[in-house]
Design a protein around this nucleic acid. Sequence first.
RNA 1: GGAGGCUUCGCCUAGUUGGUCUAUGGCGCCGCACUGCUAAUGCGGUUCGGGUUGAACGCCCGUCCCGGGUUCGAAUCCCGGAGCCUCCGCCA
Length: 429
Amino acid sequence: MHDARALLELGADAVRRLARRGYQLDLSALDDLLSRRNKSIQRVDELRSESKRVASEVQRLARQGGETAALKDRARQIKDETRALETEQEHLAAQLRDVLLNVPNLPLDAAPDGDSDADAVEVRRRGTPPSFGFEPKDHVDLGEALGILDFAHATKLSGPRFSIARGAGAALERGLAALMLDLHTRQHGYVEFSMPLLVTPETMTGTGQLPKFAEDLFRTGTANRDLYLIPTAEVPLTNLHAGEILDAGSLPRAYTAHTQCFRSEAGSYGRDTRGLIRLHQFGKVELVRLCDPERSQAELELMVGHAEACLAALDLPYRVVTLAAGDMGFSAQLTYDLEVWLPGQDRYREISSCSDCGTYQARRAGIRMRGKDGRKGLVATLNGSGLPIGRTLAAVLENHQQVDGSIALPAALAPYVGFRTIRPDGTTE
RNA sequence: GGAGGCUUCGCCUAGUUGGUCUAUGGCGCCGCACUGCUAAUGCGGUUCGGGUUGAACGCCCGUCCCGGGUUCGAAUCCCGGAGCCUCCGCCA
């Protein structure tokens, strides 16, 4: 969420930047709404001020044994007037909030023009796509042949877009998560969390999933409560300090969590229907950083590096791209995507999205900091995947497959899974 | 699910016969003074949010868990709700 005044002050520049992501900002409507709200607040405050004066006057008169009936009548009159104006004021405040909640973050100029992944600009490549002396299979064929992935039974249990990992596959999922968490907590300085997967509408609003993207979320109204399944651990990790003021000396804060993520994938019918790429439920290790807004861009570079380290540890070729302004998430002002090489698709596919949200989420969620001088300000929030388990497993299987259908695992995984190879029959050694 | 208790400005806390509560004190924190340094001490400041010019000073309004109500006036009274604690029941 933006500050209305700040947005108006930016004026044409805000309009220009929002237009880059396809949002038409109506400055004069916003200006009108803000000034009407403020005038309304002024009137109400004046009335309340008078009401307080009258009340103390009543007290004074009563003590002296004076006649207070007329003053009390006047006070009742003021109260009626105030009630009406308060209703108007609340209505205007709600309207303003409604408008602001639906304005996306302002893209930084570092984000290129465009509105699709085709408009992303490549920053760097690492690793070399493997050249096989044979036609590489995709992870579905590999996993099913090895007996470590089972989509048919997942569909029987839960319908489309679910997966089952079995034997070495399940061990790999567990091992991948542990490897990444260890990397982030021991090498990169993150604090690990175990978080609720069901959160309130307020929490979902803090990070920007609500009110605009309700249809992307799974929701439950059981037990007479309104709760949503998190689409990413970014939601609980970022909202952890909602409504709090953090000591600036304690920043930056680096948080990580491995959670299941739930997404309705409404509107992606027919896309990536095969395999582990797009599921209703998947595991993911998420990275979140809270920092001084002046440092957010440097923090983003740092965090991208942390996500890259996961891919490097798994010997996976990838590239880093800067997302186009119109392709970024609602709350982001700048996003780098990591794209891993998938031999089964013969192309790079998104495996991590690292975003600098500036103060946008912090203003929504009320996450602030207090400096040594006592001054308060909003923090900046950043989030990135580091990494999703399913897509990473797919990349590992596809990139490290052998001609006989076996998998030669990257050395870093061995301590976590207890084996180096998955044989063609699914057994391990 | 049943019964009871609690919730005040970062933490602890005073305050419930409704009105100088524009909320007390301590700790912590910030500034200044003193001190060879540290410590100690003294003085001052310190809820959060909003409006008033998007500045400073000042002024005004709201805020004592949340939402209603009674009243000229509510931290204080009434109703509803939330969270926490204790006991009972049930349970991985």
